[in-house]
Design a protein around this nucleic acid. Sequence first.
DNA 1: CAAGTTGTTTAGAATAATTCTAATTAGACA
DNA 2: TGTCTAATTAGAATTATTCTAAACAACTTG
Lengths: 142, 142
Amino acid sequence: MSMRQKKPSAINVTVLERLRAAGLRPTRQRLALAKLLFARGHRHCSAEQLFNEAKGHRVDVSLATVYNALHDFTAKGLLREISIDSSSSYFDTNTGNHHHFYFERSGQLEDIADDQVSIAALPAAPGGAEISRVDVIIRIRA
Amino acid sequence: MSMRQKKPSAINVTVLERLRAAGLRPTRQRLALAKLLFARGHRHCSAEQLFNEAKGHRVDVSLATVYNALHDFTAKGLLREISIDSSSSYFDTNTGNHHHFYFERSGQLEDIADDQVSIAALPAAPGGAEISRVDVIIRIRA
DNA sequence: CAAGTTGTTTAGAATAATTCTAATTAGACA
DNA sequence: TGTCTAATTAGAATTATTCTAAACAACTTG
Ligand SMILES: [Mn+2]
Ligand SMILES: [Mn+2]
Ligand SMILES: [Zn+2]
Ligand SMILES: [Zn+2]
């Protein structure tokens, strides 16, 4: 009974399947990053944050790979990219319809469930163009 | 009757008064930039755009000054800064309540009058914090 | 399993928007 | 006009992000 054999845990299997289902090769780096991102609850995370978190967990991964993974995950619909503060963008593990509180002082984002906001009237897109999504951002001062 | 005396035009007087009213010294550079920004209709303008426009109008002004002016104008409420695309921020000459179409392909912004959007329900800010503003962005694909 | 193929990772350089520094210039106002 | 203070500027610095091209690893096929 070798100590080498590591049986993949439930969370690892889930993450691996998510990557495969998205058409992304489950590399060591992507698995580790996806685990950090998706292990528990929804989050809003910058590239730098994820990179530091990886370092903290002894996950050896380059910053370029963090950017690659975040963009690949976003392209496959596993993440949503949010640019609110021009200083850096956030990646949201919640890809469903929802909105945000933005705390101007701290730069934190907090989810607002879709049904908490009701938009009664919306103008038609000019020229009948297709709406890709509607973002509501409630900015909180201080 | 000297050709040197230049009587300030109506638009120049207006711009000068706006700067003074805001507590900003009406310098040659600020007057020229404010004229470009506020001369006609509302606009959404990046620093680079304004800088190039100034060059086109033979307004000799440094890029640092363009940034300084845009931030000073924003701090005094003459402009509103908008960060939608993480690649650069826009400055909006419309500082009243309104919302935006964002054309993902071109990066253009278009105003939506406040009364065209009706938000029936909004969650309370956590901890009774003060809402500084609510932004609605309708993203248009293609 | 052993290629062979293709996608991924990476260090480090490059890019680009923005900010900073420190020296010069120019409004304001007595 | 002279003094004071704020604004402008060139150019360097900063910072998030992207690019390059070489090494590597996952997948496929035989
Ligand atoms: Mn991005
Ligand atoms: Mn800014
Ligand atoms: Zn979210
Ligand atoms: Zn606007």
